[in-house]
Design a binder for these strands. Structure first.
Lengths: 171, 171, 171, 171
DNA sequence: TTTT
DNA sequence: TTTT
């Protein structure tokens, strides 16, 4: 079906230090739990209410995995942009089960850190201040390129895409 | 957690005529299955590939339910904007199960028909031509209102909001 | 044209304390300058590059204007969701000029503070710690409501919508 | 500024056949005019109102330009995802002028055709029925890759990115 | 004019 | 200048 869009945008906090696993061929996969919550005041009681929603986020993209591995800790506030994907699996009794995840993979996937902290409440920080922190879109460097009518030759020096992509993570 | 965003944007086709149920107090709930799919050409084989993802969409908003009830049929192409929500339930054996749905409820929920058809392949249409068809955001009428610095009094004739809306600002 | 979407999502920093004006009939309008920027590493030189984009944001919604007035200061990081609008005006010599703004008005407009600070570098804060700070969508309270198939009567206690909202569905 | 997002999402109709220009070094740039509109019913008069907004869209990405060149005609309904950019230029009298455009360039840019037509009302179509029409994200082919825990080696055969990218436009 |  |  051409003409299809599947997009999730979350801003929330990471519930625990991310897990990074590797596939057999060595490619990393990061798993994140992200909490979003909404607050409102109850019409009747006037009480302040809050409801938290937890999201499973799976990062397949290598560059994004590096960012996760290096910078994302429990408590970090993230902007992420990915796609919904429901995965089928079997539980111990052989029954079909389904899990829906927010997948960051390929195009239109983004992960941006919204605080320069990334630590929860603990002792994790250890003094590393990653100033100029990771705003990382999916692939390679982001040439800002040419203004409209003015020519736009600024990108002429080289394609934004190349095989060595991961070498120049944009930060 | 202030500073939280939970947003899903889908453009896809409805897999079956929607089901509309009602709560005990009479409020409608519509359930939709929406398919998105992506296509790509395999790097190695050169084959054209396609992967379809199915999404469960639940519409709580009454106005949107009316639109669904009247216009949305199997095959319709929709733009929807909602939020992710995972619901816990028990299966027959009493085990916890989780279902993740795209919920259209309250703020920032939208459902827009992207074709003027809404019918699948069958005889469902019945000649009703809903010209000026449903582009329905969540609450009330949408005044396009006033220009920036010029004054903006164009909305003075009538707020889209009943005035008492402002009485319970959610914070 | 049914089936139309006009949406802008920005995360950026406020360049100056907001200006709040009022229309003749007393309704507030807030103007914000928001900076977004992207950084990348130049393919050729290897230099780190940065490009900042400035956005004019106009807030017509009263509730959002209150939030802006109370909390948003120079330097604040915001998430905003609005629509593009180009306004025509005449310069001193009577020539037509156009200004494009991001308008927060009515549906699907959101403004969320992403830091609990909101102050620039100065003395603006004054000790007010707005914990559980303003995450403000456009209209009224936000009930988080009911689970899917389980009944959904949790919202029964009070609709977020004054009942007469449904009277003027916009189509 | 790390932690910045600049995103525009539009669904609308193309007002005129696109113009494609070329930079001195031969790279294409496509310009589109896209109309979005909103309709509502006036609170007071009960009249149906409509307001149309016109957007200037500039496509720098080569692959997307090809899609525009081949498929996008006056009247086509498009989904586009890009970024806001304001360009400064001088009018005949040497005064600074600014134009704000929606730029499709690099990451997180998308252009998807939402109808299989792309023709206005005229004779432009010429019988070409591009069924399974172009849904084109920014770079190269889109591997759908691996499900969560199952391994995900499906992308092992080659990076989704490569220099010859434009050779395998995904449709 | 912001931020890193 | 589109579309409904």
């Amino acid at each position: 079906m051409a003409g299809s869009v599947n997009k999730v945008i979350l801003i929330g906090n990471v519930g625990a230090d991310p897990e990074i696993r590797r596939t057999q061929d060595g490619r990393p996969i990061a798993n994140l739990r992200i909490a979003t919550s909404e607050t409102w005041r109850d019409r009747n009681s006037g009480e302040r209410k809050e409801k938290t929603e937890w999201h499973n986020v799976v990062v397949f993209n290598e560059g994004l995995c590096k960012v996760v591995e290096q910078y994302v800790k429990k408590g970090a506030k993230l902007y992420i942009e990915g796609a919904l994907q429901t995965r089928k699996w079997q539980d111990q009794t052989g029954n079909d089960r389904y899990s829906t995840e927010v997948v960051l993979q390929g195009f239109n996937s983004t992960l941006t850190m919204l605080d320069g902290r990334g630590e929860g409440g603990g002792d994790r920080r250890g003094g590393n201040d990653f100033g100029g922190a990771p705003n990382y879109d999916d692939y390679g460097s982001r040439p800002s390129s040419g203004g409209g009518s003015s020519g736009g030759s600024s990108r002429s020096g080289g394609s934004p895409l190349s095989r060595d992509m991961d070498d120049d993570i944009p930060f």
